[in-house]
Design a protein around this nucleic acid. Structure first.
Length: 455
RNA sequence: GUGAUUGUAGUUCAGUUGGUUAGAACGCCUGAUUGUGGUUCAGGAGGUCGUGGGUUCGAGUCCCAUCUUUCACCCCA
């Protein structure tokens, strides 16, 4: 009675090779975060639904994984609850869910630990999050986010540091062709004001965010189908057709937004961030101010970022922005924060596609000890200890097996060295070390073989 | 949530208008080689054709449902 096992939709295993590559990314991100003074925290997989709902918009709420209450969860609900629809019923039978991102749980953490955290608080977090989305390329139902946030300061230096960290991480991963897109919610607000589309703000943002993907004409079509009139659309076109260097873009925006206070504020912030970046040598950073960048998450209020890898069909691999009052809903108002997140799973897919993983990341054991019988295996144990004491990763074949099988194991696992121990070796104390990549054999006492491997 | 698409050996895939016992390559195991892996040669094991129903004398092949894969929309990392 053995059924073939399977995995829920959108969930994945990571074998040894994949984990080695993923750890390469995780370690890189971790070391950069630490270098910039961020401290790691973790929060649980599940949060109360009261913490999660209402923070990601209606769409986001639908993508939340909800967990059924324990025990006889139906006993506390009535047929009336059932009849009033799944929304009402859900509230009765489920009060917790899997986290949807790392930022909201972090806000909850800050509020709950407000007496212990010193502001400004810089933290990073690397954990899986879950979304009941439809899987496709670069989109999974369980995926890892690597978040770094600073809360408790409005300084634009934080935005600057984010750009620096993004730059450094991609640089160290060997990804050179990427673009950091930057905009400000304030600029977007200014644009909405300027064209008088205040009532359709969300419609407007959703439509212009697609400019890259579907082109100007389609965006205009969409704007009109979303209820904007011809006059608004022609004004919107002025904004959508802004092109050029960052300074040119800022200048064009200034001209169009001169009457909007909030718009001008956004522009001066973007300018300041640029100014802060000047002292740094950003060779690979392609920072692009893009007035059409909108981003979905509703809690952003200031600068927003998104990173795309050029020439690869893949959504954004990193994104973030400033939120002025995320902790406000948890009863701790006026704490400004800014943060961003790396999508490790997408970065992995891109690096895999572009062949950017260095060979070394998959290296395993360095030495295998092969033996012929009980006696030589026993002798091999002391050899094993000596080699490990030198910090060299080493394993001994656990079974008494044909020497051929043991070599085969080393070959399959990619172990580059094999030490063979048999009665000759035990008697003479001279062991044989074979380098499987070259086929070369060295004979010597264990100390000299260790020395050779260390060289 | 909407609309397509996919599923056959461990893996990648063949499989004719529905017809006898479902194939290949690679991988795996054993031996040639009793103290040496990768090459070569010989042999071998592996499939309830995603699952459950239906049509038919007969289904891997046709129909329905369901799960899964990939993709687009929506949204997003």
């Amino acid at each position: 009675m053995s059924n073939k096992p399977s995995l829920p939709r959108g969930m994945r295993d990571f074998g040894p090779e994949k984990m080695a590559k993923r750890n390469f990314i995780f370690n890189t991100i971790k070391s950069v975060f630490s270098k910039y003074g961020f401290m790691q925290i973790e929060t649980p997989a599940m949060e109360n639904l009261s913490v999660l709902t209402g923070k990601y918009g209606d769409e986001g709420d639908q993508l939340l994984y909800k967990v059924l209450n324990s025990g006889d969860f139906l006993s506390k609900s009535s047929i009336d609850d059932f009849n009033s629809g799944s929304n009402k019923l859900t509230q009765k039978i489920s009060n917790k869910g899997l986290k949807y991102d790392l930022t909201v749980p972090f806000a909850r953490f800050v509020v709950m630990n407000r007496n212990d955290v010193t502001l400004p608080f810089k933290r990073f977090q690397i954990q899986p999050v879950w979304r009941a989305d439809n899987p496709q390329k670069g989109r999974y139902r369980e995926f890892y986010q690597c978040d770094a946030d600073v809360v408790g300061t409005e300084s634009l230096l934080c935005e600057t540091e984010i750009v620096l960290m993004i730059n450094e991480v991609f640089d160290r991963l060997g990804i050179t062709e990427f673009t950091i897109k930057m905009n400000s919610r304030k600029v977007l607000k200014g644009i909405v004001e300027a064209i008088g589309a205040g009532e359709n703000e969300t419609d407007f943002l959703v439509a212009i965010d697609k400019l890259d993907k579907i082109g100007l004409d389609k965006v205009k079509e969409e704007l009109s189908s979303r209820g904007l009139d011809a006059n608004m659309i022609s004004m919107a076109e002025d904004f959508l057709s802004i092109k050029g260097t960052n300074n040119e873009v800022i200048e064009a925006l200034s001209n169009l937004l001169s009457s909007s206070e909030i718009g001008m504020e956004g522009i001066s912030e973007l300018n300041k961030i640029q100014e802060f970046l000047e002292p740094f040598d950003l060779r690979n950073a392609h920072i692009e101010i893009d007035p059409t960048l909108a981003r979905g998450l509703s809690y952003y209020t200031g600068a927003i970022f998104e990173v795309k890898i050029n020439n690869v069909k893949m959504g954004s691999v990193s994104g973030g922005g400033r939120y002025d009052d995320l902790t406000g809903v948890f009863g701790m108002p006026d704490i400004s924060g800014v943060g961003f997140s790396f999508g490790v799973d997408r970065i992995y897919d891109v690096m895999d596609e572009l062949g950017l993983f260095p060979e070394e990341v998959t290296t395993t054991t360095n030495v295998l000890i092969a033996h012929f019988d009980e006696e030589s295996r026993q002798y091999g144990l002391s050899t094993l200890g000596k080699i490990r004491n030198e910090g060299i990763s080493c394993e001994i074949y656990p079974d008494i097996a044909k020497i051929k099988k043991q070599f085969n194991y080393a070959d399959k696992k990619g172990i580059p060295n094999v030490i063979v121990i048999g009665s000759d070796e035990i008697n003479s104390g001279f062991l044989k070390l074979k380098d499987l990549t070259t086929g070369e054999e060295t004979k010597g006492e264990i100390e000299s073989l260790i020395q050779k491997m260390l060289d």
